[in-house]
Amino acid sequence: MSGRLVCIGDSFTEGVGDEDPRYPNGVRGWADRVAEQLAAHTPGFLYANLAVRGKLAGQILAEQLEPALDLRPDLVTFYAGGNDLMRPKVDIDGLLEDYDKGVARLTEAGARVVLFTGVDGVEDALFRKMRGRVAIYNEHVRLMAARHGATLVDMWAMRPLRDRRLWSADRLHLNHLGHTEVAVAVLDALGAPHSLKPAGLGPRETVDPRTRRRENIAWAKAHALPWVQRRLRGESSGDTVTAKRPALAPVE
């Protein structure tokens, strides 16, 4: 198994939603869990995480790709585009064309690359409206993975990720249960031994429409409105954030 893991991307890879003050940037996430499991079975294992919340795909390619290549990784996880898909307008074809070039750079350098499809938001009233965009994005990613021999983690097919209990209060980021679910999927896709277990929460409670509306209104005020206001001001949640693990280092 790989001894030099580099992860690039946005909040999904940084670990936002899985808050833990013991970790850099105050978040843990699936990538840290994957690194911990790989390190337990790989002598001399090194891990870097260059992901920064709020980044668009073009920013990830411009700011993280070259530093990642400079670290000479033999395993790279690469997810980008989620923030682009949430913008009012997005050129999905153009976005994935640039994404493809980035994947090509990594595979040509000898790295094994792990890619991700987007999650199916069918059970959420807001994110259900984005299903068409995400589906187009996913088809591009599947073709890209096949073209470059990348390992694909198909989150669209991961039905547990439709369960709101695996998401943080902002509904945009996975919580510790969701991040663990993704870590299991990544390790399984790599064929790596691990001791992680999915949540297995069982059936969900039925929520009456009145309670659901009240929850949605509270969420909109606490999370959706601030997000829109940041967009209008041209601000990003990652403007003052730096990579949590900018250099390859042992996993402690």
Rank of each mutant, 00 (worst) to 15 (best):
L61F: 06
A57G: 01
D84W: 06
Q59V: 07
R33V: 03
N83Y: 02
Y47W: 10
A40R: 14
L56W: 00
E66K: 13
R87H: 10
R87C: 10
R53N: 06
L75W: 04
K55R: 15
Q37V: 07
E63P: 03
A68S: 13
N49H: 06
V90D: 06
D100L: 10
A57M: 13
A62G: 13
G29D: 01
R87N: 13
G82L: 04
N49Q: 05
I92E: 09
A31C: 12
D70F: 01
N83C: 11
E36C: 12
Y99P: 02
P73L: 00
W30Y: 15
G44W: 09
K101M: 12
A51Q: 01
G44P: 09
I92R: 09
A51F: 02
Y79F: 14
E63F: 04
Y47I: 00
N49F: 01
G54W: 00
V90N: 11
E63L: 10
A39S: 15
Y47T: 02
I92V: 15
A35L: 05
Y47R: 00
G44E: 12
G82A: 13
M86H: 03
E36Q: 15
R53Q: 10
T42C: 07
G82W: 04
R33I: 01
M86N: 13
D91S: 12
L38W: 08
Y99M: 07
Y99C: 07
A39P: 09
A57T: 09
L71F: 03
T77A: 04
N49A: 01
V34M: 05
G81V: 00
L69Q: 06
A62P: 00
G54D: 00
L85H: 09
A40C: 08
D98Y: 02
G94M: 04
R28E: 06
K101S: 11
G94P: 04
R53V: 07
L38Y: 09
P43G: 13
G81N: 05
Q37S: 14
E63G: 08
G82H: 05
D32V: 06
T77N: 09
G81A: 05
M86I: 11
G29N: 06
I92T: 11
D100K: 12
G54P: 04
H41N: 14
W30I: 01
V90Y: 10
L71Q: 14
L56Q: 09
A48D: 02
A40T: 10
F78A: 14
W30L: 06
R87E: 14
D91F: 10
L96V: 13
K101L: 14
D100R: 15
A31Q: 05
L85E: 11
K89S: 14
N49D: 13
Q59Y: 03
L75R: 08
L65G: 01
G29V: 00
H41E: 14
D100S: 15
G58E: 14
L95H: 10
G44F: 11
Q37D: 11
I60C: 08
R53A: 05
G44C: 07
L96E: 13
V34R: 08
K101R: 14
D32Y: 05
P73Y: 03
L75D: 07
